[in-house]
Computed example of a mutant assay.
Amino acid sequence: MSGPLLKVENLTKHYPIGAGFLKKTTPVVRAVEDVSFSVEAGETLCIVGESGCGKSTVARLLMRLVDPTGGRVMIDGTDIAGLKKHELRAYRRLMQMVFQDPYSSLNPRLTAGQIITEPVENYERLSRKQREALAADLLHKVGMSPEMMHRLPSELSGGQRQRLGIARALALKPSIIIADEAVSALDVSVQAQILNLLMDLQQQLRIAFVFISHDLAVVEHLGHRVAVMYLGRIVELATCEALFAKPVHPYTEALIAAAPVPDPTGVRFEAPVAGEVPSPINPPSGCTFHPRCPLAVERCRIEVPPLVPMTDGRVVACHVRAPASGMQAQSAAARDCPTARLARANEPIRASEKPNIS
């Protein structure tokens, strides 16, 4: 296959709300708005943002657990967003999901072995020996003893349940796994084990991951590229190295500034953001981030910023930092020269410019 393994184009999801008596229009929750990205085989794309920004809705749309309002989800060149139920069945094998809660996502009445083999038996008949061999092999791959196949989820620890969820996702040999906050409910030591497991499996099996998280430390450790979402839209998409070294969008700066640092005595930069996240029922006009943005200009209040390619390969939706004309070819050095910084006196200090104190 040529091209990306997964390609998302203009993905949109609106949830209608009850209009009430005699109301002519039906309000909608704009959960996801015009989202586009692609994922190559063996790549990890991380999606980050505040709670309610649409990350989990994107995951459900990719899996077709909910139907999109608009846009396309291309897997192996086929748009699954428009497939009927019987046509979608074959593509279910290509994508699997690891859910956030490792307990509620498992059937408490089934043993670990039954949980692992159940997806496979939806497509082919297995003998008892085949089921046991498959369960033992997958449990071994995720670092668990094959003897655990006879245990119920309630007899496993949180980390073991999440490993079981990963083993179930691997049972159908998928090309891509959607992981929605897969380590957020686990202890830090167990988180590290699960993350290392995912990275090892990716190297062995060339699996692509769409990893959804609000933990930037996890994202920096695991991801190849990062998509930053705000109120249903992607505002910046870049490689991990570029994003954490020099964030461009003001919202990305604020997210990185808010993340905990290992050394509490060190000097950290500030990128203050005032106010609350607007309602997705009635989002602001223009750039949805402009009510909270310290750099907002009049154009931000009127016009929705498109995702503009930058010289370093990232794409950014910001009228100030990535104008649609004129400055997108401007070098990073020219943007950050003293004259330009004086012209933007309200611009917050960037992460790469913070003092290095050892």
Rank of each mutant, 00 (worst) to 15 (best):
V39F: 03
V35G: 00
L22W: 14
V32R: 11
P27E: 04
F37Y: 02
V35Y: 04
G49D: 00
T26D: 13
A41N: 00
P68A: 07
P16C: 00
S56C: 12
V35W: 05
E43A: 00
L62D: 05
L61N: 10
V35E: 06
A19R: 15
D67A: 15
T25L: 11
P27T: 08
S38K: 13
E40W: 09
V32P: 10
D67P: 09
G71W: 14
G71R: 13
V32S: 09
S51W: 09
V66C: 07
D34G: 00
D67W: 05
S51E: 15
E50C: 14
E40T: 03
G70V: 14
S51F: 12
V39M: 01
L45E: 12
V32Y: 06
M63Q: 07
F21P: 00
C53M: 09
S36G: 03
L65V: 13
T26G: 14
V28H: 04
D34A: 01
T44L: 01
P68K: 12
G42Q: 00
E43N: 05
L22F: 15
V28T: 05
G42H: 04
G70Q: 04
S36P: 05
D67I: 08
D34R: 04
P68D: 07
E33W: 01
P68G: 11
V35C: 06
G18A: 11
R64M: 08
T26H: 11
G54E: 14
K23S: 15
K55W: 03
S51P: 12
E50V: 11
A59C: 08
D67S: 15
A59S: 15
R72M: 04
I17G: 02
G42R: 03
P68C: 14
R60V: 06
F37N: 04
K24Y: 04
S56F: 13
R60P: 09
E50L: 07
V39A: 01
V39P: 10
K23E: 15
G52M: 13
A31K: 14
I17P: 06
I17H: 00
G70N: 10
V66W: 08
L45H: 03
V48L: 08
G42L: 13
L45V: 08
V39K: 04
V32C: 10
P27H: 05
L45I: 03
V32Q: 08
T25N: 12
C46P: 02
F21T: 09
L62K: 12
G70E: 13
A19Q: 12
